[in-house]
Amino acid sequence: MSDITNHTDDAHAHDAHGEHAKYPFLAHHFETPYQQFDSCKLGMWLFLATEVLFFGALFVMYAIMRFKDPEVFSYASQYLDTIMGGINTCVLILSSLTMAIGVRAAQTNKRGLLITCMALTLAGALGFLVIKYFEYEHKLHANLKWGPGFYVPASEEAKVAVEVAHMTNPVLELVSANPSEGASKVALVALPPADKSSIRAPKAGPNGVASPAELEAAASTHEAGHVDTAHLLDPKLPPNTHRFFAIYYIMTGLHGIHVVIGVGLLTWLLIASIRGRFTSEFYTPVDLVGLYWHIVDLVWIFLFPLFYLIH
């Protein structure tokens, strides 16, 4: 018996053709539905492994930043809304539950239940995003930003002054954009004495205590370019607090992107289940999106205590 190709009159080939006729969803390169299901599932798990590494690297970043400056984290965490975060956690857990029930519904041919579950899960995903939007919006409004923007921008005249000075000395930009006091000192040491006169104190401070309105009022009462808002600073504000928010935005933002992708996938599942595409024989997409949705939940389970629940 040669196993050189191009011979179809073989018992094995008949078997394979039979399986393909019986299961129209079976792709040509798989022999049985079991093989196809197993392959898809393993593929999804490997993809989830890459997600674990993807977020894992960020958790390493988080751990190191927190290890370096624990006071930044315990200080800044108070500005995150524990109630909103807690509600979001519950929303995600409940949507995970409906997803899991949805998988069971698909497995047991309960189309109505499947449609309900997909709709509920989708609602959970959208609800999560809405709450997240309000959280972000609130923080951005309060100028709790990721970088130098964490500080209230200087007045227009002051900006011009800095730009003029920047043209003559490129180091200056780093100084003026630099929230860390220690760094400013180093830069001042390094500058030639002639340039030191052109450096002014940072134009405004973080609004850890002061509201933007207060800062604005302070700025308007002072002479432009010589605003001293030092009295508005929270004396307990640790340097580089913006970094907490940078990591917060990056990690929850990446998680948010995954939720948005989840919304797309769930919408697709909802439409497909209304059209009755899934049966107890073929429900692989529901199962795989379910796995994806659970890992999104799983990541949030770690994000929530690490950002919102720092004592």
């Binding site: 857990i93 539950l97 899991a100 029930i101 041919n109 073929f282 429900y283």
Partner: peptide
């Protein structure tokens, strides 16, 4: 109805897991 492939998890298990979470 039993699925052709995969494992069926009972409703009590799912609900208990959700509640515990």
């Amino acid at each position: 109805v039993q699925p052709l492939v995969g494992h069926l998890v009972s409703y009590p298990t799912l609900l208990a897991t959700g509640t515990t979470l």
